[in-house]
Design a protein around this nucleic acid. Sequence first.
DNA 1: GCCGTTTTCGGCCCGACTGTTTTCAGTCG
Length: 563
Amino acid sequence: MDSGNAALSNSEIADRLMTLSQLLPANKENFYKRKAYRRAAIQLRSMSESIEDLVRDNADLTQFPGIGPGIRNAIEEIVRSGTLRKLEILRSQSPDPLLDISRYPRLDPKRVLRIFKKLHIASISSLKEKLESGEIANVLGLRMAQHVQQGLSETHALLLHQADRLCSTVQDFLIDKCKVKRAEPVGSIRRRTELIEELSFLIETDDFPSIISKIERFGGRSTLLHSDHRSARFALSSEIFLDIRVASEEDWGQALIESTGSRRHVRKLGAATGGLKALIQSKGPFATEADFYRAGGLAWIDPELREGYDEVQRAAEGRLPVLVSLTDLRGELHAHTLSSDGTASILDMAEGAASVRYEYIGITDHSQSLKIANGVPADELWKQIRFIDRLNEKSSAVRILKSAEVDILADGSLDYPDDLLKELDYTVCSIHSRFGQNKLQQTERLLRAMDNRYFNILGHATGRLLLKRPGYEIDIERLATHARQAGCFFEINCSPDRLDLSAENARIVSAAGVKVAISTDAHAIGDFRTARYGVDQARRAGIEKSSVLNSLPWNSLCLLFKR
DNA sequence: GCCGTTTTCGGCCCGACTGTTTTCAGTCG
């Protein structure tokens, strides 16, 4: 244990690497160098071990991904001297505006400098003013304004799949290093929300003060923000919060209930049971959640539903949905191959699907207009159709479905002629261009597309990329109604940075009586793993197996695709 | 600067389209 000087947290070391990456000249040969520093910084933030301790113990830092000899030396220099000569030199050479920008690692210096020039400003504080006044959006466009907004935002949310990784790291730390008897994730990560701003754990321990001091060493140093005898809140190097709450074996169940649901949910639970405290006093304590629900006269509520909509009332009336689960999926309806921008052949993808016990896989390579993704020209798709027919004749373990991810063009027409679309088993139709159209334009574009009788599933309906880019606006109610009438379906795209439909939109679509496909949009065999994230969102939307297209065997599913 | 079941050097998408343009940088998967 170090004494005297405060230890450098992983976060502080990562900050220096990140700043270095921001200040490196933006020419082409340095592009990958900048990326390397950035990647290494992200790696450091995700670690539970103290980098400083590792350096002092002469551990080999190059064992960690993204850290090679160059960055190892830089880290060692930072730990030993508290600074980095290379960084100091860059700092002394950089103009003030760039130094100012480099405090915000999410901002792209090049773009921000352009804004500075254009609006005749030279500091982040002016940038904030111009953002709030709407001037950036007006003069440089919405996209640029969005970039600045994201870059300046103080929230440091993680995507659910990143949070999952951090969550297991923390859980291992609590169990292996802190020796707690039990540690269970609660809060938003247990509800499977798409973005996570704080990790919450319920733990069982006899010595909470010593656990707190151990967690303060997590990731080099974690700042204790608050604590009392039963709970504590930390700021982690990963830039999100960690909430810890202590419970005992006897009251574990009620503590799970109280710390898993959203505030609104817990309030509604109280109202439905005549007050949580009163219920606990009269019939508690509750060691399991099941005990609690039984005593409260409620059916078990799945964590994904504990948001405070109508789930408590439905639990009281015994009308909760039986949510779809990962094992209900019988096939994949959205997968790319080497024919467009995937990384595996059709056959490899089919084998991958077989290895996760799928009955079918739809091959949905990009259509001809999407040049960047190597979209398949019409004549090539004709060949691919015949090729897949021959593969299926050889009776593989998995039925390969002939399909395409067909671009919805600016005017709502589809990117292949009808005589070709007709030959496909079904289509996934998506927007990949002209994101700038307004809500009415996008909605009518999609409505027109749905009017094509070969339109089956709307892929990633809003085009959002979480933490990167908001989707274009659509009138989801109108589209859901139209889909219902026209016999079209929606996709829940499982890609962890899309999760599009959102749970909110999936709820609306489902309420309109429209089925959804839970699709991974796989570009590699390993991507089938992400199916769980789509299932999570479907469950948050209250979707049952019967509303999921790919829970059906192909001989039933194919009937739904005939219009 | 990192990385390797084609590589210890030469890669790390790419390329047509759009508009934040007024001639080049950002964007889409």
